[in-house]
């Protein structure tokens, strides 16, 4: 029983990371049609900025520096690299591919290829007893952060003017411009939101895995892609459900079926969802 609880909570912690990466990817894709390979770079930038800033301030404040760095990177990438290629989807993907390759290499040259120990706030070091299981406290930090971001995103989408524009734009971008709205401003905004969530995921991944390396972003990104496709592109609740599904499946099968079996199962789940519902869970 206690193993199951531990696996479930750890799985939800992983789901939190997937959700943070996938929600931004999904919004960027849903609104702007950009498959963003550089999204993993936003994550790594956030993680390394936090790692760097933690020398000068408490980790909690350093995470904010990381998020700011992620937002700045995302906005610059959108304005300088993506915007000039508006509507040329393939070229946009290519640019983000080039950026992800060059970005990882840049991080390597600055911080080295080896994993660096990541600073952890002291209050996540303990364990919390839940139903007889001893759960490391960092899991709850991850889950809490993702819940907070989920609620904030839902409120943004539901109650703000730009949220309205984003929801409408995911449905039919052209029609939004035909109502006299400059939809490109919303592009920059979703990139900023995605960059913030990814950078937060980067810091949390550092805390969770206890190290950061230039490749961290890339390995999380692939599972985030799977979450986005399963959840339905452009849907934040879809990403949340899919993230939980994917992470729990992965966690349990990896434990009971041997290391790696869970990862394979996740891809099999993707295939099943595609055969059953090609547009993802959110879109019937």
């Amino acid at each position: 029983m206690s193993t199951i609880v531990l696996l479930a909570v750890t799985g939800l912690g992983l789901a939190a990371l997937y959700f943070l990466v996938a929600s931004g990817l999904s919004l960027v894709f849903g609104l702007a049609d950009v498959l963003n390979f550089a999204h993993g770079l936003f994550l790594s930038v956030g993680a390394y900025a936090t790692w760097w800033a933690a020398d000068f301030m408490p980790v909690e404040a350093a995470v904010l520096v990381g998020v700011a760095a992620g937002v700045a990177t995302a906005v610059l990438v959108e304005l300088i690299l993506i915007r000039p290629l508006y509507r040329r989807t393939i070229e946009q993907v290519l640019v983000t591919v080039g950026l992800s390759l060059a970005g990882v290499a840049l991080l390597q040259s600055v911080f080295g290829a080896d994993p660096r120990p990541f600073p952890r706030p002291t209050w996540v070091e303990g364990v919390v007893p839940v139903f007889g299981a001893r759960i490391p406290a960092d899991r709850f930090l991850l889950i809490g952060a993702a819940l907070l971001v989920f609620v904030a995103l839902a409120a943004f989408l539901r109650y703000t003017r730009y949220g309205l524009i984003v929801r409408a734009g995911v449905e039919n971008r052209e029609m939004v411009t035909a109502l006299g709205i400059d939809v490109r401003k919303a592009f920059t905004l979703v990139f900023a939101i995605g960059g913030a969530a990814a950078a937060l995921a980067g810091s949390l991944a550092g805390i969770y895995f206890t190290t950061v390396s230039p490749g961290t972003g890339g390995s999380l990104l692939i599972f985030a892609f799977i979450v986005v496709v399963i959840g339905g592109m452009g849907s934040v609740p879809g990403s949340a459900v899919a993230a939980i599904l994917v992470a729990l499946l992965q966690q349990f099968v990896n434990y009971y079926g041997g290391s790696g079996a869970g990862d394979v199962c996740v891809v099999a789940l993707l295939a099943v969802v595609l055969l059953w519902r090609p547009k993802g869970l959110a879109k019937a």
Partner: peptide, 16 residues
């Protein structure tokens, strides 16, 4: 010093 940095940048420039 990183080949992938140089090639990645060249690639982005080529796309544009």
């Amino acid at each position: 010093a990183q080949p992938m940095f140089v090639l990645g940048v060249v690639f982005i420039l080529a796309v544009y």
